[in-house]
Computed example of a mutant assay.
Amino acid sequence: MNKTLLAAALAVVAAAPFAAKADENNQLNNFFVAGNLGQSNYRIGGISDKSDAFYNLRFGWRWNGIVGAELGYADLGKAKNDYNFASTWAKPRVAQLGVTAKYNFYNNWYVTGHGGYLRSRTTAGVTVGNVSASEKSWNNGWYAGAGVGYDVTQNVSLALNYDNYHVKYGRAGASESQANTNIAAYSASVEYRF
């Protein structure tokens, strides 16, 4: 956890001087709220149902509309594995804190990138017949993503995005093993700047 937090803090500190300089010229449209809706794809072997709905809500600030910080919440859907007599499932949700950047490369077209620290809460369970049992696990991880989009107006943008979430399940050092997985998310997004 300390290494992940340190990496996120260093990234914000490294970007701050550039962001402060960029902020001197523009005070408009720096705050943003963005929502993504799409599909998650679990990168786990042996799972029969690897895809589910994905959504993400992020808030942030970009200095001069270029680089800044964000925080958000994502529901990564549910992965399931069905057997003849039972089914197992896992459903992670994450809070995220990181850096974000947006660069207009041609007229209203732009590319974006973001990444940072995440705190996951994964609920996993098993169902046998009518009996179910589940357990929750809280862990640290990281996320990163990129997108391409179009500024429809000065305040509204639409984009297509790819994100990757590195999520853990279990307790490190406990008798149970800790499972790590990457979850890809493909989505469309709307961003509003104010």
Rank of each mutant, 00 (worst) to 15 (best):
S134L: 09
I66V: 10
Y106Q: 14
E70P: 02
K102L: 14
Y83M: 08
I66H: 03
T100M: 04
K80R: 09
G113H: 10
T123F: 02
G77L: 02
K102Y: 06
G60I: 04
L76R: 03
Y110D: 05
N84Y: 05
R121G: 09
D75N: 15
T88Q: 01
W109L: 15
V131P: 05
L76Y: 05
N81A: 06
A74W: 00
N84I: 13
A95L: 14
S87A: 12
G65H: 01
Y110F: 15
S132E: 10
T127I: 07
G68R: 10
S132A: 14
W89N: 03
N108T: 06
E135P: 03
E70D: 01
N81C: 01
V111L: 13
R121F: 13
F85S: 08
A74R: 00
S134W: 11
W63P: 07
R119E: 14
K102A: 14
Q96C: 02
G60M: 08
R93M: 05
A86K: 04
P92Q: 06
N107F: 05
V67S: 05
N108M: 05
T100V: 12
R119Y: 14
T123L: 04
V94Y: 02
N108I: 07
N81P: 03
R62H: 04
Y117T: 06
S120H: 02
W61P: 00
L71D: 00
G98C: 06
G116S: 04
D75M: 09
Y83L: 08
G98T: 08
S132R: 06
K136N: 14
N81L: 04
A133D: 14
T122G: 08
W63Q: 02
G65K: 02
G113M: 10
G98F: 13
Q96A: 01
G68K: 08
A124Y: 12
D75H: 09
A95D: 13
Y106R: 15
G113L: 12
V99P: 06
V131L: 14
V111S: 12
V131R: 10
A95V: 09
L71P: 08
N130P: 09
K80I: 06
W63L: 10
S120W: 02
L97R: 07
G68P: 02
K80F: 07
P92R: 01
G65L: 00
A69P: 03
K78D: 01
W89V: 03
A86T: 08
A79N: 11
N64Y: 06
T112V: 14
N81M: 00
Y73A: 03
G129L: 12
N81F: 01
K102F: 08
A124G: 14
K80Y: 04
F85H: 03
A101F: 06
V94L: 08
A74T: 00
